[in-house]
């Protein structure tokens, strides 16, 4: 008994100890690698390829930060986390940042003491069902068995949606997306629910994607973005402005093709400040002047990353929709680099 308390206290003290250390930037530089928390495997967002290299939309954010801070896009240790382990991993200092389809909510930001640095994907929760069920709307799912990843906001939205519409369902809690896919395909649940982007990515991995339809109802707002711990604002700034640099670069037309030419200097002062040929923005962040250049050279700007990983020409096939630049009717809007 004494021993149990001792280990409990020890574990608690270690967790708390991680919270107290502040200068994440120094830790990352000293370590030489960035510890980035990602999903356990969601094609298009974060999944290892056949050679074991992590790739995907969320992975690209990690690599951009590593390039900006360490100058090497491969100096990233990817740490797979589940919906349940991700916050503990971040709070304990096991990872420096989390880029894992995580929904920005009030209580996570305020109560769990995390800092969401921005939004890299505007999403909403949807349902996927086999076409042979003949279901066309989520409101027809009365009495259905629904697989849902446990420890996520989806679990709460699901409960709310069925309660508000006064229909019943049976939740089957599962740990990872892969497990949900297996349960769904085996028919032990009628429907699978998660963020619509995740559904598209999951369906792309099916043998016959055409046999499954994603229902039209989007039952929640799911702004997904990378996050860091509360209390280290310098580090938070670096991650935030790296993400903003990717978004702003698309707006200004900076691509991986023309970045070398543009970084010599242009007549657009905003681009000059972004790429470091004018101003001291990098210095203000505690980095050098070329930080954003390096981040952009990894995978290009936001639009290029989107198209390559989850865009319409990939198996996942997501349209830009809300995730277009504000100039094109979307919600992406990076604050000015000034």
């Amino acid at each position: 008994m004494k021993k149990t308390v001792f280990y409990g206290a020890l574990a608690a003290a270690t967790i708390a100890g991680g919270v107290a250390s502040a200068a994440t930037l120094d830790d990352v530089k000293a370590r030489g690698t960035l510890n980035c928390g990602v999903t356990t495997g969601l094609i298009g967002f974060a999944a290892p390829d056949s050679n074991g290299n992590w790739e995907g939309f969320d992975v690209a954010v990690c690599r951009a930060v590593a390039a900006a801070v360490l100058g090497d896009a491969n100096a990233v240790e990817f740490i797979p986390t589940t919906g349940k382990t991700r916050f503990t991993a971040l709070a304990s200092g096991e990872i420096d940042m989390l880029a894992r389809n995580t929904t920005w909510t009030f209580s996570r930001d305020v109560d769990l003491k995390f800092e969401f640095v921005g939004i890299n994907y505007y999403d909403g929760q949807g349902f996927i069902v086999p076409r042979e069920l003949g279901v066309t709307s989520a409101k027809e799912l009365d009495g259905a068995t629904v697989c849902v990843q446990t420890g996520t906001t989806t679990e709460l939205n699901l409960a709310d949606f069925f309660r508000i519409n006064n229909i019943s369902y049976e939740p089957v809690p599962i740990e990872t997306n892969a497990e949900g896919q297996q349960q769904y395909l085996a028919g032990s649940c009628d429907a699978y629910t998660t963020d619509a982007s995740g559904l598209a990515a999951t369906r792309a991995a099916f043998e016959n994607p055409g046999d499954h339809i994603i229902l039209p109802e989007i039952i929640s707002k799911e702004p997904l973005g990378p996050l860091v711990r509360h209390g280290d604002n310098e580090w938070g700034d670096i991650v935030r402005w790296t993400l903003n640099a990717l978004i702003a670069a698309e707006e200004y037309g900076v691509t991986s093709a023309n970045i070398d030419e543009l970084s010599q200097g242009t007549d657009n002062p905003e681009i000059n400040r972004l790429l470091g040929s004018a101003g001291t923005l990098g210095e203000m962040l505690g980095l050098d002047a070329e930080w954003a250049q390096r981040a952009l050279k990894v995978g290009g700007n936001y639009g290029e990353i989107f198209e390559r990983n989850i865009g319409e020409n990939t198996p996942i096939g997501l349209a830009r929709g809300l995730n277009a630049q504000w100039t094109e009717g979307g919600l992406l809007y990076a604050p000015p680099f000034r």
Binding site: A9, A12, A13, A16, V19, A20, H230
Partner: peptide, 13 residues
């Protein structure tokens, strides 16, 4: 350990 825990929790708010 107990004091460390309490102090760290307090530091993290």
């Amino acid at each position: 350990l107990g004091m460390n825990l309490v102090a760290n929790l307090a530091a993290a708010g």
